[in-house]
Simulated scan of single mutants.
Amino acid sequence: MSISNEALQKLVREIEAQAIAAQQQISLVRTQLASKQREMRLAQLTRSEIASLPADTGVYEGVGKMFVQMPISDLSNKLATQMKEIETDVDGLTKRLHYLETTAKNSQEHIEKMLKGGQA
């Protein structure tokens, strides 16, 4: 059973649209992943810097347009929690990136198969 040229062209356009959407999503996820990794490095650097300070040192956290003094232990705990959340986000983004890359690859393979099948 042969597929008509019109149906084949329609199918190729649909798969191309999926591939293009996947490529756009890949770009977006890579940008988000880079942003999360920068946040992680900043939190790690901040945590290592405050760890080297004496326990009685006053540290401040920015809240809007003002700064609030807080104990080093509280800030360290807050940074640790933030780092765990970022790690979870990075894991999720990495899985999504893998899924999207697989989808784009499969779409490309399907297009190539259909074009080769159409030429035969």
Rank of each mutant, 00 (worst) to 15 (best):
Q23S: 14
T31A: 13
Q25T: 13
Q25N: 10
M40D: 05
I15G: 00
A51Y: 11
A43D: 06
R38M: 07
Q44E: 13
K36S: 09
T46F: 05
Y60I: 00
L45H: 12
S27V: 09
L45W: 06
R38E: 11
T57V: 05
R47F: 01
Q25P: 01
Q24V: 04
A34S: 12
Q23Y: 02
Q44F: 05
S35D: 15
M40L: 14
G58C: 11
I26P: 03
L33P: 02
R41W: 08
G64D: 02
A51F: 13
Y60C: 01
Q44T: 09
A22I: 04
A34C: 07
Q18G: 03
L28V: 03
K65M: 05
A55V: 07
A43H: 03
E14R: 12
Q23F: 00
M40S: 09
Q23K: 14
G64R: 08
A17H: 11
Q25C: 04
A21Y: 04
A51E: 15
Q24Y: 10
Q18V: 14
E49S: 11
E16V: 05
A19N: 07
L45M: 10
L33Q: 04
Q37G: 04
L33T: 03
Q37W: 00
I26S: 03
L45Q: 14
A34G: 13
S48M: 12
A19F: 02
A21T: 09
V29T: 10
I20S: 14
I20T: 14
K65H: 11
K36R: 15
Q18I: 09
T57S: 12
R47S: 06
Q24H: 14
T57C: 05
R47G: 00
T46C: 12
L33N: 04
E61T: 07
R30I: 08
S52D: 06
A55P: 01
L42D: 15
Q32W: 08
E39K: 06
Q32K: 15
L42V: 12
L28Y: 12
Q44P: 02
A34E: 09
M40I: 03
Q37V: 04
K65Y: 09
V59R: 00
A34D: 10
Q25L: 13
Q18K: 10
T46W: 06
L42K: 15
T57Y: 08
D56I: 01
L33G: 03
A17L: 15
S48N: 15
A34T: 15
A17Y: 07
E14V: 05
Q44A: 08
L53Y: 09
T31I: 04
Y60E: 02
E49Q: 15
E16T: 10
T31Y: 07
Q23A: 08
K36A: 15
L53K: 09
